[in-house]
Amino acid sequence: MEEKSFREVRDKLADVIHAASVYGQITYITNRGRRVAAIVPVPVAETAEDQAERG
């Protein structure tokens, strides 16, 4: 798990996506020190989506 500012992610987007897809790394994107989004591996997103659909 890692935290990066929006600026850092913008500058290194390809690296962040590669880390998620190859190494399963979750990267939280921050704005002014607060988590606002995340880049996650597809299996993590699919699991969250399945759980949300089940209610």
Rank of each mutant, 00 (worst) to 15 (best):
V42Q: 02
A20D: 10
G55A: 12
H18V: 08
P43E: 09
A20M: 06
V16L: 09
D50V: 12
I39H: 04
Q51I: 14
D15F: 06
Y23G: 04
A45D: 02
E2N: 15
Q25C: 08
R7L: 11
Q25N: 09
I17S: 03
A14P: 06
R10M: 11
E46V: 15
E46L: 15
R10H: 12
R54L: 04
E49G: 03
A37E: 12
G55D: 10
Y23D: 11
E2Y: 14
V42K: 01
I39L: 11
T27P: 02
F6D: 10
R35Y: 00
R34K: 11
A37F: 09
P43T: 07
D15T: 13
E49M: 15
I39E: 04
V16P: 01
Y23S: 11
P43Y: 09
R35N: 03
F6S: 10
S21W: 06
E53R: 08
G33R: 11
D11A: 14
A19S: 12
A19W: 00
I26C: 08
T47W: 08
K4G: 04
E8D: 13
Q25V: 14
A38I: 02
T47A: 12
Y23V: 10
Y28L: 09
A48W: 08
A14V: 13
R7T: 13
V36P: 08
G24P: 05
G33D: 07
V44M: 05
R10T: 10
R54S: 10
P43M: 10
R54T: 07
G55C: 05
Q25A: 11
F6Y: 07
A48L: 11
E2S: 15
Q25W: 04
V9T: 05
E49F: 13
A20V: 11
I17L: 09
V36N: 03
A52W: 05
S21A: 13
R32Q: 13
N31S: 09
V44D: 07
L13K: 14
T30L: 03
Y23Q: 12
K12D: 11
K12T: 13
D15R: 13
G55R: 06
N31Q: 08
R34W: 00
M1H: 13
V44S: 07
T47Y: 11
S5R: 11
I29V: 15
A48I: 11
V9P: 01
R35M: 01
R54Q: 08
P43N: 13
A38H: 02
P43L: 05
E53A: 06
V22K: 05
P41Y: 01
R35C: 04
R54D: 06
T30M: 01
G33E: 12
T47N: 11
A37R: 03
T30V: 08
Y28N: 08
A38Y: 02
